[in-house]
Design a protein around this nucleic acid. Structure first.
Length: 349
DNA sequence: AACTCGGGGTC
DNA sequence: GACCCAGAGTT
């Protein structure tokens, strides 16, 4: 009797052991809504399933179709994304929804070439939507699949070289049908069995196919990429608050970090400061509230938090300035860093 | 090819 | 603390 192919093993395993996730259909016969896959893949870029789940549920409730999303306001989309991070994803998701609704008759493309043209959709996401939503025969490589493959075939490569080799090998092992299940199966094996630090070889369906199974060296795969040590940065954050307990935020027009989000005035830690002209305010009191620590991908931030109590007299604010009531903060697009700062401020009021 | 983009889970 | 996560866009 001929032994089972890798794809058959993975698909059979997946049908019995798949993770139940809010963006997955309840059974395999159910038709998949491409918008569900489209949305989940944006959220899942570089973000763990556990973190995404509550955001996905909220988002889908508010924007159940791509047309409703396309007709929403960007600020509202960013607000519901607040806390999830990598806010460029939300900006691009919104752009793509508009393009699909206004230029593509509201139909999400079912092929790699058209998908990858859309903003926020790169190689991985284009392939993932093709495979998962449309069951197309394309190779999908995410962090999970790259790790599983690097161990399965004991690949002594890293970075882009590893990805190329994985692509070549997976192309030879891709099934003729049910690639949607194969792709998600490899992901689930990576997420639940072949994990980065804890490897449960005894539960793995690919045990007999794996070159590093039960070996101490398994944990070394994929080979690590040496990373630079994180830099420290310091800055000052200013919280202007009036007697109505409204806090002054700026809508950040700078590209890059926190694009289009609401931020507090600050200086010292970015090239493009989130500047405010304090002269138009009459400041009654000033407190130093201590230091907030926040970790970014490439640096650790120590931010001095300064509370400034200001008069209520009507001032002509610039367009990008807005006083937000404390109880309304959740309605606005405010990154986690600034929620942490406000929390520190409240202890000092 | 190397940077820049968040924030939280996990160990 | 360090690593990792259903990566993409820019330089």
């Amino acid at each position: 009797m001929q032994s089972l192919k890798i794809s058959e093993i993975v698909i059979n395993w997946y049908k019995k052991n798949f993770r139940i996730l809010p963006w997955r259909p309840k059974n395999f016969d159910q038709k998949i809504d491409p918008y569900i896959v489209f949305l989940s893949e944006f959220m899942l870029q570089q973000t763990t399933v556990k973190t995404v789940v509550p955001y996905f549920i909220n988002f889908l409730k508010k924007y159940p179709t791509i047309e409703i999303l396309a007709k929403a306001k960007l600020d509202d989309v960013l607000a519901i994304w607040s806390g999830l991070g990598y806010y460029r994803r939300a900006n691009n998701l919104y752009k793509s929804a508009k393009i699909i609704t206004n230029e593509l008759n509201g139909v999400i493309p079912n092929n790699y070439e058209d998908l990858i043209k859309l903003p926020g959709i790169g190689d991985y996401t284009a392939a993932a939507i093709c495979a998962i939503a449309f069951d197309k025969k394309v190779v999908v490589i995410d962090g999970n699949i790259e790790r599983v493959a690097s161990r399965l075939f004991e690949l002594d490569l890293r970075g882009n070289d590893l990805k190329k080799k994985v692509r070549k090998i997976l192309f030879l092992n891709i099934p003729g049908k049910e690639n949607s299940l194969f792709t998600q199966g490899l992901m689930d094996i990576g997420a639940t069995i072949c994990k980065p630090k804890i490897i449960n070889c005894e539960r793995c369906p690919l045990l007999e196919n794996c070159r590093v199974a039960f070996k101490n060296s398994a944990i070394n795969y994929p080979l690590k990429i040496i990373k630079e040590k994180k830099i420290k940065r310091t800055g000052n954050f200013y919280c202007l608050i009036n007697s109505k307990k409204e806090i002054l935020f700026l809508r950040n027009i700078n590209l890059g970090l926190f694009e289009n989000m609401h931020v507090l005035p600050s200086d010292g830690w970015l090239k493009d400061n989130h500047n405010l002209d304090f002269n138009i305010f009459s400041i009654k009191e000033r407190f130093d509230c201590g230091v907030i620590k926040h970790s970014f991908t490439h640096f650790d931030l120590d931010g001095k938090v300064i509370l400034l109590k200001v008069d209520d007299n009507q001032i002509k604010l610039k367009d990008n300035c807005i006083f937000i009531k404390l109880e309304n903060l959740d309605m606005f697009s405010i990154p986690t860093l600034y929620h942490k700062i406000v929390k520190l401020i409240l202890k000092n009021i």
